[in-house]
Design a protein around this nucleic acid. Sequence first.
RNA 1: AGGCCUGUGGCGGAAUUGGCAGACGCAGCGGACUUAAAAUCCGCAGAGUUCACCCUCAUCCGGGUUCAAGUCCCGGCGGGCCUACCA
Length: 936
Amino acid sequence: MTPVAEPQTLHRYDATRADEIETRWQRHWLASGAFRAPNPGDADFDPAKPKYYILDMFPYPSGAGLHVGHPEGYTATDIITRYKVACGFNVLHPMGWDAFGLPAEQYAVQTGVHPAITTQSAIDNFRRQLQRLGFRYDWSREFATIDPDYYRWTQWIWLRAYHSYYDTTSMRAMPIAELGARIEHDDALITLVDGSQVRWSASTPLQQQSHLDGFRLAYLGEQTVNWCPVLGTVLANEEIIDGRSERGGHPVFRLPLRQWMFRITAYAQRLLDDLTLVQWPDSTRAMQSQWIGRSEGAELRFEVEGFGDLTVFTTRPDTLFGATYMVVAPEHPIVEWVCSQGGAHRNATEEYVAWSRNRSDVDRQAESREKTGIALGVTAINPATREAIPVWIADYVLMAYGTGAIMAVPAHDERDFEFATRFDLPIRQVVAAKDGCAWTGERATSDEGIACHSSSTSISIDGMETAAATQKMIAWITTTGIGCARVNFRLRDWLFSRQRYWGEPFPIVFDQQGMHYPVAETALPVRLPALVDYTPIESDHPMPPLGKATQWVTTTAGEAGVDSSLLDADTPVRREINTMPGWAGSCWYYLRYCDPKNAARFADPTLQKYWMGERGVDLYIGGAEHAVLHLLYARFWHKLLFDLGEVFTPEPFAKLFHQGMITSFAFERADGSLLATDAVREESGKWFEIATGEPATRVIAKMSKSLKNVVTPDEVIAEYGADTLRLYEMSMGPLADSKPWNTRDIAGVFRFLQRVWRLAIDERTGEVLTARIVDPGVERQLHRTIHKVAQDIERLAFNTAIASLIELVNSATRPTEMKDPSQGGLTQDQMRRFLGVLAPFAPHMAEELWMQIGETGSVTTAPWPAFDASQLVADTIELPVQISGKIRARVLVPTGADASAIESIVLADMKVQELLAGRAPKKVIVVPQRMVNLLV
RNA sequence: AGGCCUGUGGCGGAAUUGGCAGACGCAGCGGACUUAAAAUCCGCAGAGUUCACCCUCAUCCGGGUUCAAGUCCCGGCGGGCCUACCA
């Protein structure tokens, strides 16, 4: 509770005063352009300064506004920004809005207000809340992804990908026109959808286009997609959790659909390799690397009579002799072939395929992974044993990974073992344990070992260790033409179409034959039409809402902006009605900040080169929930633009840091059920459920409406002010940790700010108070504080930096009984330096006192205060003396004393002599500056 | 099931490279000021024993390495996050 000011403390720092000070300086800073970061070429740009680009993850402005979790990362970047400016850097610290996407659309559908309106008010609210925290953003660079001037370039980048393919020899993106020209020149054979081959010159334009689509980095491909009928859209694999949509938790079904895709898999190796170039948390790099999922192994072909080759991917080609059956995914082409052949198994097969297709991932999960499957009724030849082995279908084999077919080695793979046991298929041991333990046959052994029972007339790997056996097997399958070594990635191509209204339109149209044509770059942006009815069409088949904009959809090539050399201007065309996913705008926003108003380019290369420098964004702070999705997508776009000569660093974000989550308290009954914070009462440090009187325990939980433990910045600012909120969030603990919000603790930092105020201002009169003479102890501590705060900011340890500021203020605080205030506190010069180090944390308080004590200019442009290294250490230090490892005494030694000097001081010490009682230590360990250990 | 992270007072946390465990803050206790209270200022404060000296025990539990372990190693237990039939 903020006390009401009494007459004798009219000038106390309280919530009212904080509000007055903060809003006044915020207005001043904004009006004077104090936070503008000049670009190279601007009149006030100083080229002598080094650059520093610090970025917060693009916020998605939700209708609910900020909660106290948001300002945690933003306060951290703000502190660093202000510190770096004080250290003489040109700092780029921008803010903007990731404003397209599903939540805005859903919110709009719920409220019946157009997403453009709800999004704009959410943005305005977010901006107001951020500005009320006094963050040093260069607001002149602000933009939103929904601005046509921005999404024009999102579309432009997509077109660049559309016009490119990945050249596997030079390992980079190249213009697709060059590939087309080469194919045309060679009149190469192209493979059609039905598998037949035809010369380029003899193929239709549609066939040619479809062939090139097989290379484009942004391409139209038929994919089994994750269809969510409730949301009315398809979702990326990453947007699905446990078979349900990440947003809303609705069931998701698989469905084949022609959709725009990104060939991110072409970049799998580079995305993996370049993780070594960035300074990112190990956990995040590990997650990306697991997501990319590189595995080395071999591709092997098994012959199926009448069908041809059934190709599998395996990481254990050394177990080929143990492959006693094969399994294909229900979507595998061989299944359709078998059905087309008729036969006894046809009906059962079709039934199984239909059943497994309709089964959502949720069901698969619910059935606790009990393996299901059915024999396909055909056999394949194991190329090593020449045995005919049965082919089965099972949905534990995924069409999207490898080739959609596996060779099953039940003896050495747990999944295959489970399946073989269930369906009574043969199990053959081909790897013996290294330790000689006998094979029991009771479970699969997937460890490496010694090959056995792996011999035929043409090859034997018996007695070889797994690694060597694998190598020999790969050599054999390569020379015999059965297969080859292969690297497989778990990463799949990125589904980029959404059946939504609130997203970037694709700059693409289709003619009546179904050929697609790009909109010319000069005709961008393709504006999102204003739609009155944007509600999703809930159906079993995807129906994008943009289809309702019939005037917009049905147009001519000329009207849509297709180059007339591609298509006659009056050719009737239909626009693409899918839109880009929410991720699109956040893939390159950090580039736009370098030059946000540029109408001719996405960013001027000179400006981009300056701010991005050699390694990209210097520090990127945001939540770990984006460890895979956003960060992988943005890296992919960046590498694509790098190949195309549009950006100049291999990676976008040099250093990454994740702030932890701010949690809250909730209460738990004895049975483990949760109670809202207003359902309990506290009594002498214990909690009881109000309704029943039963004891409850305090637990840490996520902030949620239902637990009534959500805290918003607005309410904290109203009670204490923004400086207190900032200080509290930073003092809670390490930035990276998840920490519980404890309203009671805020008073601690508020009282600290009141002591700072009282140090400089007489609470009764409002007069400025300064010490007349320098207290040498305080002076030394001030130097130490300046040094420590700088060090702590550099390592993002704001909590300990604040602790040292508090210690300094506590030392300088005047006792109540001090009659003459000039006898204590800080001198004006000391106060000036202290405000310099306080400013990054509590900028409003620092700015106000800066003015009050009569300093000129603004603390926001003042250089970081200097410290004297000789002041950091005292003349003498107290060292603990251990005797046989236990601390028994302490001695004072000169700070610079070396080991032998310390030893003689210690041995001469009365207390030590008494403790030794005449014994001579067997060994003396002296660690200067630390401690002494005497072993007796 | 696997991978990564984590466990320190009543609570949030500090201890940056193995070197005085518990900085700083909250809550608590005592004192000064006050008619009184609040606020402020000054102190106390890991646990234990007969005190404030001393001593003993203390960083989830059990081992180990070391002159020295919250920190390093091995095993176990608890909490969190991610992945989840990836062949």
